[in-house]
Design a binder for these strands. Structure first.
Lengths: 142, 142
DNA sequence: TGCGACAAAATCGTGCGCGATATATTGTGG
DNA sequence: CCACAATATATCGCGCACGATTTTGTCGCA
C-alpha cells in the first residue's frame, strides 16, 4: 500500500486553489494597501464595526498571536483604531477609521472581479461553496 | 452595491478548508518530523527520485525563495541530499536518503486518516477534488 | 574568444499562521 | 477580602509564501 500521487491528493488541490485565490486577490488589494487577511478583517468590520480581537479571531479562525501584529499594521496604515475596552480592560476593541470605511467603496469592484476569475456562474459557484464549507466543517470536527 | 458578508465569499471557505486540512495533517506529520509542505515534496520524490529544485517548484507552484530554505531544512533533518548537477552546475538535484525513503512506509497510514477526516467516500471525494482543481486552473489562467 | 542574453538557485525583507509562553485583568470560592 | 483559576491580549520563535534582487553558470553568436 503506497501513497497516491501528489495530484490525486485533495489536500493538494485545496492548497493550490488557496494559493491561486490569494494570487487573484493580490493585484486587486495591493493598490489599496491591503493584504488578503487584512481584507477579511475589513469584511467583518464593514458587517459590524467595533469588535474585539477575540471576536474577529473566532470568525476568522485566528488567534491573537496572528491578529495582534496584523491589526497593529492595519492601525499603522490608518484603517482601524485599537482601544482598550473600558468595561473590561482585558479586551481590545477594533473600530474602523474614516479611511477604513472608505475602503468599502474603494474595493466595491473586488468581489465581481474574483467571481469573474473563478469562471463560474452564481449557481455553480454557490454549490461549490457549500461543498467546500461542508468539507471544512467536517475536517474541523475530526 | 456593498460587499457580500464574509461567509458568502468562496475565498473564505477555501481559506478555512485549507487551514483545516493543514491542521488535520499536523498531528500525523509532526511525529515524523515533517511539515505539510515538506510532505508534499516527499510525495513528489517518492513518485520520482532525483529532481531539480525548479522541477519540484513547478509541480508545487513554489519558487526557489520558498524551496531553498525548506529543502535545506529537510537536508538538515536527513531526509534528502542536495547536490549540484555535474551536467549543469546551475541546477541543484534533490535526492532521497535512506531515511527519506523510509518515511514512505512510516507515513503509509496518513492518506487513509485524512480521507476519513474529510467524512467523504471515494466517489464524492473524487468529484469535489475535480471541481476544486478546475477552480484552481481557472484562477491561474485569469 | 569573449560578450551579452538567458536561466537556476540563493538571498533578503515582509507578512501571515501557529505552538508555547507571558502579562494583565476579571471572576470566584473560602 | 484574598488567593487562585479563568480569560483576553501580547510576545517570541519558527516555518512557509512571495516580491525583488543577486550570484553563478550556460548558451548563442559575432
Amino acid at each position: 500500500m503506497t501513497h497516491p500521487a501528489l495530484n490525486d491528493h485533495i489536500c493538494f488541490a485545496l492548497y493550490g486553489a488557496h494559493q491561486a485565490m490569494s494570487a487573484a486577490y493580490k493585484p486587486l488589494l495591493e493598490p489599496l494597501g491591503l493584504t488578503y487577511p487584512q481584507y477579511l478583517v475589513l469584511l467583518l468590520l464593514w458587517e459590524q464595526d467595533d469588535q474585539t480581537v477575540g471576536g474577529i479571531g473566532g470568525k476568522l479562525g485566528l488567534q491573537s498571536n496572528t491578529l495582534t501584529p496584523l491589526l497593529k499594521r492595519m492601525e499603522q496604515a490608518g484603517f482601524v483604531k485599537r482601544t482598550r475596552s473600558a468595561a473590561d480592560e482585558r479586551q481590545v476593541r477594533i473600530g474602523l477609521t474614516e479611511a477604513g470605511r472608505g475602503l468599502q467603496a474603494a474595493s466595491a469592484h473586488v468581489p465581481g472581479c474574483i467571481m469573474k476569475a473563478t469562471g463560474l456562474e452564481m449557481p455553480a459557484l454557490h454549490a461549490l461553496h457549500q461543498q467546500i464549507s461542508a468539507l471544512r466543517d467536517r475536517l474541523q470536527d475530526s
